[in-house]
Write a protein that binds this DNA or RNA. Structure first.
Lengths: 154, 154
DNA sequence: ATTTTAAATGAGAAGAATTCTCAATTGGGA
DNA sequence: TCCCAATTGAGAATTCTTCTCATTTAAAAT
């Protein structure tokens, strides 16, 4: 994980931003959940801890945290933007039929990341990997699983 | 690429949907562009070829094509949903500061895909891989590029 | 070719999500 | 403690997406 509470807030401050209670709480909410949440969901939880928090602040803070690389947002399936702490390195299987999202871990990507740094001068802070397709429940019998989209050989 | 015009429309038809001019045109528009577009951009181009097309139809068709696995949507950076033909196997570097998206190719993923089929019974039709971080222009001097988020070894 | 019928469409209203505005508040340096 | 730019809350405004429903149409049946 890229940042615990202390590390994250420290980074905020180092970048010249104020440490407001709202920002603390939003960060805490993100930390306390192990799954991605919509802005609305995050705001709901923020208000439980800090009732006078405004929705706009949640949006503003999420944007700010995203720009600082502390938070990442993904957009799986039909739903709206979801946010989570950056650096969690989740990989998602998104079913196009039922919308189910299966998470899985992988350690294939470190090598690629380092290559990116070299080839493009790009500093990776987070990654979002989605495989779209059909889950076992939704797959129709007779569909060949070998019939994959990309011709890559790996 | 998963589907040329013929293949794609054939799949639509096989699934029991009608082959309307609108759907043809939307498919053509997606085919004729090599980059992902917002629904609004797609609709604009559709109307150039078929002026009385309605926006709702564009949305409906994009959803339909997505469910059929013919179109994929991604959400890079701040902007709204973008669509493109599925199976293009693009990989994106998204700069959190300037929003630039650098595309790159890779052939590391075929192996993973096949593993997914085996382990999860998941049939992959398309993939979206994003690495978030800072591009070479936006990286500040002194930032260590080795300080990557994930501890994976590859 | 004509008929038939459910699917698809266009137009604009409706609904959601996100951003903006601005007066009031506040964190944190001086 | 004082000060001031940064931040906030509230709700308006904007933008994106979906819905409604009367009309049109693809394509199967005749």
């Amino acid at each position: 994980m890229i940042s615990g509470l202390k590390t994250g807030l420290k980074k905020l401050k180092e970048a010249g931003f104020k440490l407001t209670p709202q920002r603390r709480v939003i960060f805490e909410v993100l930390e306390s959940s192990d799954k991605h949440m919509s802005a609305e969901e995050i705001h709901k939880r923020v208000k439980e801890r800090y009732p006078r928090a405004g929705l706009a602040t949640t949006y503003r803070t999420l944007d700010l945290l995203k720009e600082l690389g502390l938070v990442t947002n993904i957009n799986l399936g039909e739903e709206h933007k979801h946010y989570e702490l950056a650096g969690k390195c989740h990989y998602h299987l998104v079913c196009l039929r039922c919308g189910d999202v299966i998470e899985f871990g992988s350690n294939f990507f470190g090598k690629i990341e380092k290559g990116l740094s070299k080839d493009h001068g790009f500093e990776v802070t987070d990654q979002n990997v989605e495989f779209h397709g059909y889950c076992s429940k939704c797959r129709q019998k007779g569909e060949k699983i070998d019939d994959l989209a990309c011709g890559y050989e790996g």
